[in-house]
Nucleic acid binder design. Sequence first.
RNA 1: CGGGGCGUAGCGCAGCCUGGUUAGCGCACUUGAUUUGGGAUCAAGGGGUCGUGAGUUCUAAUCCCACCGCCCCGACCA
Length: 499
Amino acid sequence: MQKTAITPTREQNYPEWYQQVISAADLAENSAVRGCMVIKPWGYAIWELMQQDLDKRFKKTGHVNAYFPLLIPLSYLEKEAEHVEGFAKECAVVTHHRLVADEENGGLKPDGELEEPLIIRPTSETIIGESFAKWIKSYRDLPLLINQWANVMRWEMRTRLFLRTSEFLWQEGHTAHADADQALLETKLILDLYADFAEQVLAMPVIKGEKPCFERFPGAVSTYCIEAMMQDCKALQAGTSHFLGQNFAKSSGIQYQNKEGELEHAWTTSWGVSTRLIGGLIMTHSDDNGLVLPPRIAPQQFVIQPIYRNEEQQQIVLNYCQKLKTDLEQQSFAGNEIRVLIDDRDIAGGSKSWEWIKKGVPFRIEVGMRDIEKNSLMLAPRDSIGNKQAISRDDLIQNAVTLLMTMQDNLFNKARQFRDSKIYSINSLSEFTQFFAGELNIDSGFASAYACDEVQIEQFIKPLKVTARCMPLAENQETGVCIFTGNTNAKKMIFAKSY
RNA sequence: CGGGGCGUAGCGCAGCCUGGUUAGCGCACUUGAUUUGGGAUCAAGGGGUCGUGAGUUCUAAUCCCACCGCCCCGACCA
């Protein structure tokens, strides 16, 4: 009978465990505004690290940042037919521009109705398209590679912290190119960038793939994604990259003159990742004692806990800790200074330790008089609780980077091993049905099967509450017989229950 | 929008059925003492429009009515 810091455990009640991890790690909380969250400092620090890393990658690949308005005229959204249909139902609409005293009922009421309603952006293709149309005149203006860090709002029916909130933070890239090939290359470049980020930084293994037609972004020609498996075997779409063809260029009038002097529509892409990644991060690594952070995304990589009994000792121990912190900070890990915090708060040592465990800090270091006399320390790694060990100060300083790197690799390998062990090859419709009905002695997982990219296969999977996640790019060469329709030339498709 | 549940201290709840002192408990918080190497102990404190409004009554957290809000299940989820 082992006591866990988080109740219930993952096995007892996974969704509730998820909420509890967020609360125990102090990442975020529900706000008074329906469906919107307050991201607290520890959660926001994780987001900032994601932003910094991604931003560097975008800039290295030639993109630049800009900012576009939060409010989009209704008429802009109406321009692209599929886009309207996909988003109309979940938009927040601004219809008035001031408040006046409400004589009848007291309080305030909206006044000054707008001639044209404005919608709060659910995504920015249309309003950025408007600017692109003005900016692009000649083939010399292409490619145009823009990214924006922003918030968007989608009026979701049911929300869950980080995974689906009404307002969320993200980056959205929008690019325009002179031809289809260039745009498609961009789409794939970003897909690779996202996958590399997810795996190297978040230690979250992902499958790169293309969405089947019925899961495409509204208005896109093709949608590519990275799909991750959570510890309950559900799938999480962790990022998308869309090839928009000329659809938005035509609806927004993005045209350029080519070398021959002819007017042509540009080819555009859009792509994004959001604060949902934090949800994915939580559900990939965390355990029954709370959050587990891969070192590269941990706001603090080492937390030093000084232990002393009186003011005299306090002085000695704190000085020692300060020097230790400096020595660690002089090294760099994954291109950044090692992040170290001395937690000198006057609270009981036990609860202080548990607090950092629940927050997922990779390494805790305890320093007391005994250690100082022996020039050693107690080192407690987050990924193996109970494995607290004495280590000499010199060893720690020398091996700090290796320790971080090793933990980063271990977390990724563990997650990848878990995922790979839960992907099953399915060869018939009956097997498919049994698999998702839990009749195959398999708890759950991803199903990999040949399926054709046609809307009609939805009728087979929807009743099972299963979704088609993607057609993995790595397996796109082989073709087979669709388990639903019997058509040949079907590609491998991944199916799963999803968030 | 349908079905179910819940609003009492920052959080979690009891009290309501059967109306009756000053509305209580746990956690958290403050102060003091003793502690301190894996979730400390004791003592003393602070903190409440009992969701809102109207009603029944000598008396309402408790009974009646209306409204508001939240949660769960379903529909929805690019």
